[in-house]
Design a binder for these strands. Structure first.
Lengths: 197, 197
DNA sequence: GTCTATAATCTGATAGAC
DNA sequence: GTCTATCAGATTATAGAC
């Protein structure tokens, strides 16, 4: 089919973002040219600038949207005993991130390609997410359910561990996502438990 | 001091690798030009090719040297009870990686910028390292010391957690490295413990 | 909204003088 | 071993026609 000329507002825009997401995740922001994005979208490079002021904004908006989507998920953070709050967090984190490997990959790998202002904004959002887990841990410590000496460290350790699932998990592999969640929950549950050594 | 011309074998070579390491870690392989490396080294771009056949080899050799150095460390893997083997592994991993943040960062972030052949070689080395931890876990399960359902998963989870230290730890911060090691060891020890729920 | 054409600059890598 | 000069092509972003 010949490439057509004309108006495609409302379809090209999302396609630009989807394509940029895919290519940035695959080859990295610095290695992807606007021409390559345009080629995959099916327009010429110049046309991209109807949808983004520049390449940096494209990256930043992908990362910001990912983080705000993440923060907008309803998780009933403060409901029920801390142990149940933590279990919900673990399950949610693994499943949500496993569902969006490209967004997660970019959010981790492309931080250094953000301008300082954009970097600061993304970091603020990331910290908000971490604070939710930290708050759960602190409630559990207060309630005497958790044996956690330093909630901030444990927060970062748990998030690193859970997000690591994305580096190896593949749908249809040896383990189902349910099994993965169960295994990680087992580790987290024990790691934060009050020590009975 | 004016820039001199002449022979500097034995000094320029290491300087090229050090500079490439620094810049790749800072801005990413794709974003760093040979001209920029040359500028920091204090030579012209063409001179770099006396020390590397191309940019790709520069990246690959940095990553390969990092992995073989890691594997060459003496760790007395199989000595003593599994719990002590695991404690040594945790302490070693955190300290070794905290000492080499640039190498570690590159080893994680630049995998996709390796040619397929080079990627395969680095992955082989990485797997060798993972296998050491997995072997410790299996010995502990056999001995009845550990409650680990799936040693492979737990291996990946522990390594992700430990390596995550590098994303936030800074010398001179709130916690000393000794304190960090103690905190992470506490989590790992409990996470792999036989369950007494 | 998309196109073509182009500005201004950068890229990895090589050749040959010294 | 390092230099200068260069090849051949890529880069982001913009201008102006349609």
């Amino acid at each position: 089919m010949a490439r057509t000329t004309g108006s495609h507002a409302g379809i090209t825009g999302p396609k630009v973002r989807q394509t940029a997401l895919k290519l940035f995740a695959q080859d990295g922001y610095a290695a992807v040219s606007m021409r390559r994005i345009a080629g995959q979208v099916g327009v010429q490079a110049g046309a991209l600038y109807n949808y983004t002021p520049d390449k940096q904004s494209l990256l930043f908006e992908l990362m910001r949207d990912h983080m705000t989507d993440l923060l907008d998920q309803p998780v009933e953070d403060g409901d029920g005993p801390p142990l149940e709050q933590l279990e919900r967090f673990v399950s949610f984190h693994i499943r949500y991130h496993a569902d969006r490997p490209d967004e997660v990959f970019i959010a981790y790998m492309e931080l250094r390609n953000l301008t300082p202002e954009n970097f600061a904004e993304i970091e603020k959002l990331r910290r908000q997410y971490e604070d939710r887990l930290e708050a759960i841990l602190r409630r559990g410590v207060e309630a005497g359910d958790f044996g956690v000496a330093d909630p901030k460290i444990v927060t970062l350790a748990i998030i690193a561990m859970l997000t690591g699932v994305n580096t190896w998990f593949r749908e249809g592999g040896r383990l189902s996502l349910d099994e993965v969640v169960a295994q990680y929950w087992d580790m987290v549950r024990k790691a934060v438990a009050a020590d009975r050594r």
